[in-house]
Amino acid sequence: MIVIGFIGFAIKQSFGDPIREITGVSVSVEERNKLREELGLNDPFLVQFSRFIKGAMHGDIGRSFFYKKSALKVILSKAPATLELVFCSALIIVLFSIPLGIYSAINPRSIFSRIIMGGSTLGVSIPVFLTAILMIYIFSVELHWLPSYGRGETINLGGWRTGLLTLDGLKHLIMPSIALSSIMLPLFIRLIRSEMMEVLQNDYIKYAWAKGLAPRRVFIVHAFKNTLLPVITVGGVQLGTMIAFTILTETVFQWQGMGFMFIEAVERGDAPLMVAYLVVVGLIFVIVNTLVDVIYGLVNPQVRITGRK
């Protein structure tokens, strides 16, 4: 975490001058310098960094210039939006990639699998923001089915503002989560398909067939479970990509989450908020990858056994 903080801090210097954003154009140079001095922006790098670390020890990772409050608070208030979005896209990915992947692995030649594969190539190659804008034009501008921006109505559940419990909120969720999943979904379909096809070639599958097991048992219990191992690993790593893509999706849909907040912070030169975002995202990465390792152990006995030795 300290390393991430350090890197974030090192690059913030090149992000530009926050003073410009918070003062009018005709403000004199003296006034600007005075303000810069007050904020401690003139201090040498190491002094600023040690001040940051000192604060971080007490849970204070800086104060956003724009929101005028603690950066951590700002991020926490934006986090539910992003987490709900990521959760819903993950749900879409899991619900669709597994059946579609298995189906196209079992019947590689059927027309339906060819359509899936063709569609997934298309999905991977269209950039997220294009998918998003296309969807906005089709479903909100032309057909007036779905709202074009924002989170809609939210309900406050003990500080967690959720859009999952209102119809309006769910409607607003549909397009952003599809857009966000549009990159990962095809990737997972292809991954599951190729892994599964490879597994199906294995001797123990042939043996299972020979034993006369029901196809369902062969495919799901024997083949699919072994397919899952690489999928979980990739999934953990891809979560990072997913967070990166929330930045794009959230910008297009004016989704009030962390990604959108980060882009705005970069544009405004709101350095403390940028650094705080990097630290928090770094933390999420560490947690998720730890979880993946744990799950991996649960699914794959080999990992546990080698670990014991």
Binding site: I133, I136, Y137, S140, V141, H144, P147, S148, Y149, G150, T251, V252, F253, Q254, E264
Partner: peptide, 18 residues
Amino acid sequence: LTPIKNDATRVAALLSGD
């Protein structure tokens, strides 16, 4: 008042009646 930063989204919000 809702801030919508992205140009295309802002226009789409008007066109769709949001």
